[in-house]
């Protein structure tokens, strides 16, 4: 992945993260108690789908914004004394 792809991927992930915060409020179904599939209240069905959306966003973040350089940084040198400040 080159720098510009990585940067646009990170921007997309951040944008979707913010969108998810707004999507979480779902005031449009606040007072709707109708049932999906005959048993699942629509407000609960929406938030269950929201959880699946969070998992997909996690997958996207790993694909597009994975901190490979941090992994290399962590592994490239021996540990130093943790008690130093």
């Amino acid at each position: 992945m080159n720098g510009s792809q990585s940067s646009s991927g990170k921007s997309l992930v951040w944008l979707l993260f913010v969108v998810m915060f707004f999507a979480h409020q779902d005031f449009w179904w606040w007072d709707d108690s109708s049932l999906v599939l005959g048993f699942l209240p629509i407000g609960l069905a929406y938030h269950a789908l929201f959880s699946i959306g969070c998992a997909l966003l996690g997958w996207l973040a790993i694909s597009k914004a994975w901190p490979t350089e941090l992994e290399v940084f962590a592994d490239e040198m021996e540990e130093t004394d943790s008690t130093k400040i």
Binding site: F17, A48, E71, A74, E79
Partner: peptide
């Protein structure tokens, strides 16, 4: 629950991995 799914996963990604990297490198 659903907000925890979003916030927790975000924290694991943004905070957890970074702290793991510093912990592993500097021995914390």
């Amino acid at each position: 629950a659903s907000i925890s799914g979003l916030v927790h996963a975000g924290i694991f990604f943004l905070i957890g991995i970074r702290l793991w990297a510093f912990g592993k490198k500097y021995g914390y």
